[in-house]
Amino acid sequence: MGRNLGTAALLFVAMVLQVTVLNRLGFAVVPDLVLLLVIALAAARGAAAGAVIGFLTGLAADVLPPADHVLGQYGLVMCLIGYVAGRGAVRAPMLTVMTCAVCAPALAVGVGALLGDPGVDWGAFEAVWPGTALCNLVVAPFLVWGVNALFRVPRRPRKKALVLGGRRP
């Protein structure tokens, strides 16, 4: 319970910081802190928990004040990302996190395009995605490390994963 509350608080802070600080620094590209946090949490806590965390976080991100897209868009994206990260992290945590961090922005743009979000087209994708992906790649390891240190959960699953991986072959 405490862990869930901590997670919620962490995500809330991350969302607020993302829109008030990071996005206003004036840099061309900034890492998507919330997305990375979801990935890191999902990697730490498994697929089901990751999906729930992603869904709820996405919903919160959808209603976060400067928002003008349909409700549930980010919920969908983050739910999927959380699930995939949680599943993949069982085998290869870091690789999964990296892949998700790179693919998630593309997925978000793709969903936005599917939903007919105005202003989302191939040109916007080309302009936004490489920078954001690179930024996410750079920041992701630190966030994963921070989340693991904060919740101290990952030790167990990771050890388990290693043991499992050892047994399976």
Partner: peptide, 26 residues
């Protein structure tokens, strides 16, 4: 088992998201 539960959860959540999107969109 865990993986199955996860699949169920994610399926439900995705469905919920789609519903939300549809409702909000319309």
């Amino acid at each position: 088992k865990d993986s199955r539960r996860g699949r169920v959860v994610v399926g439900a959540l995705l469905a919920a998201a789609l519903v939300l999107i549809t409702v909000d969109h319309r």
